[in-house]
Design a protein around this nucleic acid. Sequence first.
DNA 1: CGATGCTTTGACGAACTTCAACGCGGGTGG
DNA 2: CCACCCGCGTTGAAGTTCGTCAAAGCATCG
Lengths: 254, 254
Amino acid sequence: MTQGNRGSQPRVACRDCSLYQVCLPVGVEAEELSELDRIIHQRRPLRRGEHLFRVGDQFESLYVVRSGSVKTYAPSVDGREQITGFHLPGELLGLDAISNGDHPCGARALETASVCEIPYELLESLGGRIPALRQQIFRLMSRELLQEESHLLLLGRRGADERLAAYLMDLAERLRRRGFSATEFHLSMSRGDIGNYLGLAVETVSRTFTRFQEEGILTAERKHVVIHDAAALARAAGNEALEAGGHPTTLAGN
Amino acid sequence: MTQGNRGSQPRVACRDCSLYQVCLPVGVEAEELSELDRIIHQRRPLRRGEHLFRVGDQFESLYVVRSGSVKTYAPSVDGREQITGFHLPGELLGLDAISNGDHPCGARALETASVCEIPYELLESLGGRIPALRQQIFRLMSRELLQEESHLLLLGRRGADERLAAYLMDLAERLRRRGFSATEFHLSMSRGDIGNYLGLAVETVSRTFTRFQEEGILTAERKHVVIHDAAALARAAGNEALEAGGHPTTLAGN
DNA sequence: CGATGCTTTGACGAACTTCAACGCGGGTGG
DNA sequence: CCACCCGCGTTGAAGTTCGTCAAAGCATCG
């Protein structure tokens, strides 16, 4: 399963990829780009539910989502799992495996998805020769850190509607940047996944969707979402509390 | 404030630093180590409460804690703050600023703390010439990612005692690795900070400490903590739920 | 020695989880 | 092609945990 899909040739060169501007090659010149191209494998597409890698798998490669979407999850002590991220095209996976040599998180496809495989050792040494590539890797890792930080923000002491609203806005924004509509889209993950990601029970997610719908903020029919009032959604995400008139309080004061 | 403490000479060379084995130089040979040494500044120690950098500050350097401890916090939309991490000696700060060029989080000292300042541009280009250094930077960034993931795990759907217990165990382990006692230590952060970090109210943190104490798991007198029953603490952290006899359930199934 | 900030404790209420049941849709097999 | 089944989503009611409010104790610091 980890073996066996090597030998697949790069079918789409980086320069011809629609993700060219968000992905690894940013800033890399044509000549060096072909060097990068040579080390990248394109694996057969993953079907919904299929694993890209599992918790504990030996770390060999990083992956970039090319199409579809992938979720990553961390195992909890007691056997439960916490979803750590939903990954859209252009996002790098597996960075958290570098330090220990095996994958601390698992990754599975939310829908049919294709990914590029980038053998880490090769990438790393290429990073020594190509400054633009090295810089981009650092930027991408940093971006990943940022994303987890905003996830932390979501999970720490916020109401259910703040969480869901912020989640939907983040998703919409990421879709927009990839050329999709930010007001009408398809949720590739289940309510259960969303709840897990947001630290809420499935039922709470469902009820909150219903409430948003009653308030005219959006329409959520199964997995099809239409956002009608982005401003109201932003209000729900940001500062529900302020509507009561209270001053924002600064915590973490010391 | 951002200016003005340059010109400070490196007083302690990396090779003479007690953190030599956890820090950046891991794997770097003597000759190259002196190159690294040359770009590192040692700033005057920070006093308790003093900022190392603030949210929005322009990104210039990474920092490594040399002694004491530092907390980082992310601003929330509504003016509140979420503490994203407590950093002990040997831990790298500011990595999340690489991608955007300014600091998304602020950092302030929890107690008197000294840090090394590493100008990023210089480090980055040094990374091109010194493979071992480059690899170590990647490993450290990856480790940071890991740490945030375990923080996520804590914040997602867990009871107050699970959170606090897991937090104390993590802290104890990190102290142990740095040569301190894992069973008796000083909490440099306030109850409020702990609560903020764990997504709990101050009062809940306090009450949970009291309960642990009543159960004989530990003694917490103000900031002085002694762990009496590490096994019980681990049980509280991991799988309180299992004591009811239930099987661990696998979520995030699809 | 007073002031200030941190910690603790108690009482109350709200938000969310849990438990339970049902509807819906999509996929599968007869 | 239809019927059944199973997973997913929704809804309601009850229960718990934790947050909020209030107040008081206690160290530290000026």
